[in-house]
Simulated assay, not measured.
Amino acid sequence: MPLTPLDIHNKEFGRRLRGYDEDEVNEFLDQVIKDYEALIRENKELQNQVLALQEKLNHFANLEETLSKTIIIAQEAADEVKNNAKKEAQLVIKEAEKNADRIINEALAKSRKIALEVEEMKKQAAIYRTRFRTLVEAQLELLSQDSWDALEGVAATRETREIAGHE
């Protein structure tokens, strides 16, 4: 068990002939008691400081551990968000490609339909031109026939008769 200031204070030494000076020994013991008490107080203060520093160290160790876990969780969340964004981007791209293919196919179908309609109109125009040409040629042929001259003569005779009959 360690020595206390009270133990030093209560210590009695036996007396002998030609012993030490009692006052000097008591002064020295008083000085030892003061120094010993100061050392004990300092030791207590240092122990308290050690405990406080140990608590701070534990706090910072816990804080460091919490931060490390938080960083790991944040990194995992960031990775998850990144992966989800990649997947979503791929889905958007696939959907856009499908829409583009659909639009292209619709445009090609419309283009083919219009091309067929244009061809059909060209055929109908050609048929119309042929029929019109045939009709015009037939009319020209009628006009160029001698029977027109005969009709003109009959028509002129009728006019002459009508005029003569009215007078």
Rank of each mutant, 00 (worst) to 15 (best):
F132S: 06
S111K: 10
K86H: 02
A78G: 05
R102V: 08
A89G: 03
A125K: 06
L108K: 13
R129Y: 03
I114S: 05
A96P: 00
Y128H: 10
K82G: 08
Q124S: 00
L108E: 13
Q90L: 09
D101G: 03
L108M: 06
I104M: 12
A107C: 10
E76W: 03
T130E: 13
V81N: 01
R102W: 09
L108R: 13
V118W: 00
V81L: 01
R131M: 07
N105R: 12
I103S: 13
A125S: 10
E80T: 14
E119N: 06
V118K: 10
A89C: 03
V118F: 02
E97D: 15
Q124F: 00
E76F: 02
A89N: 05
I93V: 04
D101T: 14
N83R: 15
V81Q: 01
E106R: 11
K110M: 13
A89M: 02
A77H: 05
E80P: 01
K113H: 12
D79F: 08
V118M: 09
I103Q: 15
A109G: 09
I104G: 03
K113C: 11
A126Y: 02
A77P: 01
A125M: 13
R131C: 00
K87C: 01
S111G: 07
R112W: 04
V92C: 00
A100H: 12
Q75R: 04
A96N: 11
A115D: 09
E88D: 08
A77I: 05
K94S: 13
A85E: 04
A77S: 05
A125F: 11
A77Q: 11
K94V: 05
I114V: 13
K122S: 01
K86E: 09
R129T: 10
K123T: 06
K94W: 02
R102Y: 06
L108F: 05
A78F: 07
E117K: 05
T130Q: 09
I114T: 05
I127D: 10
I104E: 14
D79P: 01
A100Y: 12
A96G: 06
D101K: 15
N105A: 14
L116I: 08
D101P: 01
E97W: 09
V81G: 00
I104N: 15
N83F: 15
I114R: 10
